[in-house]
Design a protein around this nucleic acid. Structure first.
Length: 499
RNA sequence: CGAGGCGUAGCGCAGCCCGGUAGCGCACCUGCUUUGGGAGCAGGGGGUCAGCGGUUCAAAUCCGCUCGCCUCGACCA
């Protein structure tokens, strides 16, 4: 269908459905975002990928602080017994925890082998955090005494480990980076409001910065975070028709407060358990960007998070042209820089312009300025748009003057395109056979009635592979009959096969 | 954990069926010509053929075991 490149130097690489995973792995590696590490399930994030992550972190971090949150840091190791404090929580993570059992290794110089020293086993094994609720609530017990200590609004940027059986770069890795917010409140209403506020914040961020449309919703009890009373989610659909949870926000009720005995004195001098939330987004967002905007030529990055927004490429034929062209390219680069644009001048003599064009397109740079002898004469630059493949020549002054406008248009264009694509992949149906056919053939969201039971949810999952991604928050309720059992239903939910 | 596939130069691969001097493309080094969509020619460097064991005069190739990776399932905020 769509081809990565027809050049004789690159393999022809079809995208859709069956081969998306191959396309995805190729793009991640060739664009220099990340690579597989010697440790199964873990990845090495390369400089370009890290720059992208930094551009995601920065605005999020600012938004958290602007809404009153403070950053802190808690240990990576959690005593095994802490996890056991909250029954549902431990059950949810038991299958995927890495455990540290020794504090020393033994070396054998003869065989040049090393192994854990059997005489140095830890009295209490330590779990490498799969999430930090337990160790954070251990601290919260000491931090919270009165209603004057509330609300307590904490965030941490950290790595976590979940021993995934089937890892994918960025989308599901054994170790990943994220932020996790943990808050404590005096009332249920306030905690719930916090969870909803963060959900809105996530949705705005993902839509406005990553240009990815999302649907806000509530998870079913079956899909809920282990230990939560209510889990809110933002869900999106990727180019292959599979759903991806892009962020979650949990209302934890008093579950962790009870488990860790965190009480406060209210204004009436009465002792009460606090109310809590937790919420997070991860490096998975990078996977979402790749699989929302990418095409046959590679990555396409939204300008607001692109490590390089404009690449400037000098072009010359004869040696005597080189100096003049390069100088002009430098001037253009400086003018863009002066306007706060993230710009790269690629004057590497190792590669010819054509090679550079392909390379920077593969890496998703939104705009390319080319400056050659013709432009030198005319005082122009050639501007090329990555996402639309449009190419035009403008007077240099106009190109510089319009750069912000162009980048904003690209940002909006990417969002509109992704939104139109997602909407075209939402199928509203009341017919189970049709639902199965759609899921089988095209993927996408199935917007259908559900009787509200876990039993039905699991049966549908068993038969179709699709799960309920969420009960949308911003859709009107509507009476109907469950697509599977025919029992009464008061709202449609979104089914999909998910990452 | 189940089913398939793959481990040969930094990367991508051929060679294996049918045993006999380890090859190709890209990348790298040197030189010249080139440079507006992945440059051309000439010369050159680079290998524990995943590991261990077996068969054989001889093993990348045949046999056995082990390890690793990928894809698809099962499982999984």
């Amino acid at each position: 269908m769509v081809l990565l490149s027809t050049s004789k130097y690159t393999k022809v690489m079809p995208i859709p459905m069956q081969t998306v995973s191959e396309w995805y792995t190729t793009i991640v590696e060739r664009a220099g975002l990340a690579e597989h590490s010697p440790v199964r399930g873990c990845m090495t994030i390369k400089p370009y990928g890290w720059a992208l992550w930094e551009n995601i972190q920065r605005p999020l971090d600012e938004a958290f602080k602007a809404t009153g949150h403070q950053n802190a840091y808690f240990p990576i190791f959690i005593p095994l017994s802490f996890l056991a404090r909250e029954a549902q929580h431990v059950e949810g993570f038991a299958q995927e925890c890495a455990v540290v059992t020794h504090y020393r290794i033994k070396t054998d110089t003869a065989t040049r082998s090393v192994s854990p020293d059997p005489e140095a086993s830890l009295e209490e094994p330590l779990v490498v955090r799969p999430t930090s609720e337990t160790i954070i609530w251990h601290s919260f017990k000491d931090w919270i005494h009165s209603y004057r200590d509330l609300p307590l609004l904490i965030n941490q940027w950290a790595n976590v480990v979940r021993w995934e059986k089937r890892p994918r770069l960025f989308l599901r890795t054994a170790e990943f980076l994220w932020q996790e917010g943990h808050t404590a409140h005096a009332t249920a209403e306030e905690a719930l409001q916090e969870a909803r506020m963060i959900l809105d914040l996530y949705a705005s961020f993902v839509q406005e910065y990553l240009a990815i449309p999302v649907i806000k919703g509530v998870k079913t009890p079956n899909e809920r975070f282990a230990g939560a009373v209510e889990t809110f989610t933002i869900e999106t659909l990727l180019i292959d028709g599979k759903a991806l949870q892009a962020g979650t926000s949990h209302f934890l009720g008093q579950n962790f407060a009870r488990a860790f005995d965190v009480k406060f004195l209210n204004a009436q001098n009465e002792l009460e358990y606090v109310w809590a939330t937790s919420w997070g987004v991860s490096t998975r967002l990078i996977g979402a960007v790749i699989l929302s905007h990418g095409d046959e030529k590679g990555l396409i990055l939204p300008p607001r998070i692109a490590p390089i927004q404009v690449v400037v490429i000098p072009i010359w034929r004869k040696e005597e042209e080189q100096a003049a062209v390069t100088q002009k390219a430098r001037e253009v680069t400086e003018q863009l820089k002066a306007k706060g644009i993230r710009v790269k001048l690629d004057d590497d003599p190792q590669h010819r312009p054509g090679w550079k064009f392909n390379e920077w397109e593969l890496r998703g740079v939104p705009l390319r300025f080319a400056v050659g002898p013709r432009d030198l004469e005319a005082g122009t630059v050639e501007v090329a748009w990555r996402h639309s493949a449009h190419k035009s020549t403008y007077p240099q002054s106009e190109a510089i003057a319009r750069i912000e406008e162009w980048l904003m248009d690209i940002q909006k264009g990417l969002f509109d395109r992704a939104k139109a694509r997602m909407e075209s992949q939402i199928y509203r149906t009341d017919n189970y056979t049709e639902m199965r056919e759609i899921l089988e053939e095209k993927g996408g969201f199935i917007f259908a009635h559900w009787d509200g039971t876990t039993e039905t949810e699991l049966a549908i999952k068993e038969e179709t592979g699709a799960t309920i991604r969420c009960i949308p928050l911003e859709m009107p309720s509507e009476e109907g009959r469950c697509i599977y059992t025919g029992r009464p239903s008061s709202q449609r939910v979104l089914f999909a096969k998910a990452y």
